[in-house]
Measured scan of single mutants.
Amino acid sequence: KEQQNAFYEILHLPNLTEEQRNGFIQSLKDDPSVSKEILAEAKKLNDAQA
Rank of each mutant, 00 (worst) to 15 (best):
K1T: 15
A48G: 06
K43P: 00
K29S: 05
L16E: 00
A50P: 07
N46G: 03
L16Q: 00
A50E: 08
F24A: 02
N46W: 01
I25D: 01
V34G: 12
I10D: 01
N5S: 13
I10A: 01
K44G: 07
Q3S: 06
K36P: 09
K36W: 14
L11W: 15
D31Q: 10
Q49E: 06
E19V: 12
V34N: 08
A40W: 15
E37C: 08
E18H: 12
K44M: 12
L11P: 01
T17E: 03
N5R: 15
L39N: 02
Q49N: 08
K36F: 14
S33G: 07
S35N: 06
L45V: 11
R21Q: 05
Q4N: 05
L39V: 12
N46K: 01
Q26S: 09
K43I: 10
L39R: 04
S27K: 07
K36Q: 07
A50G: 10
I38S: 02
R21K: 06
A42Y: 01
A42P: 00
Q4H: 08
L11Y: 14
K1A: 13
E37D: 05
F24V: 01
E41H: 10
K29E: 06
G23Q: 06
L45A: 05
P32H: 07
Q4Y: 05
Q3D: 15
K44P: 01
S33Q: 14
D47N: 08
A6Q: 05
N46H: 03
A50L: 08
K1G: 15
T17S: 05
N22I: 11
L11E: 10
E41M: 13
G23F: 15
D47M: 14
E2H: 05
K43S: 06
I10P: 01
Q20C: 01
L16H: 00
K1W: 05
E37M: 14
K36S: 05
A6L: 09
K43D: 02
E37T: 13
R21P: 00
L16W: 00
L45F: 07
I25K: 03
L28T: 03
Q49P: 04
L45C: 02
P14G: 07
E18S: 11
Q20M: 04
H12D: 06
N22V: 12
P32C: 04
D30H: 14
K44A: 06
N5E: 13
S35V: 10
F7Y: 08
I10K: 01
E18Q: 11
E18D: 07
S33T: 13
L16C: 00
R21T: 04
A50D: 10
Q3H: 08
F24R: 00
Q26F: 13
A40K: 10
S33H: 07
L16I: 08
A40D: 06
A48E: 08
Y8F: 07
K1R: 04
K36L: 13
E18P: 11
F24E: 00
T17M: 04
E9S: 13
F7G: 05
E2I: 05
Q49D: 03
S27I: 11
S35P: 05
V34S: 09
D30W: 10
Y8E: 12
S35M: 12
T17P: 01
N22Y: 14
S33V: 05
P14N: 11
I25V: 11
F24P: 00
Q26N: 09
K43G: 04
K36D: 09
Y8D: 08
H12A: 13
E37R: 10
P32S: 04
L11H: 12
K43T: 06
K29I: 10
Y8G: 05
G23V: 14
Y8L: 10
F24I: 02
N5V: 12
I38E: 01
N15C: 06
S27T: 07
L39H: 03
Q4G: 09
A40F: 14
V34T: 12
R21D: 00
A50S: 12
G23N: 12
A42H: 00
Q20K: 01
N46L: 01
I38P: 00
P32V: 06
D47P: 01
Y8C: 02
N15E: 04
N46P: 00
I25A: 05
K44T: 03
P14L: 10
E9R: 14
S35H: 12
I38R: 03
D31V: 06
Y8I: 06
G23A: 14
K1I: 05
A48D: 11
L13S: 02
I25L: 08
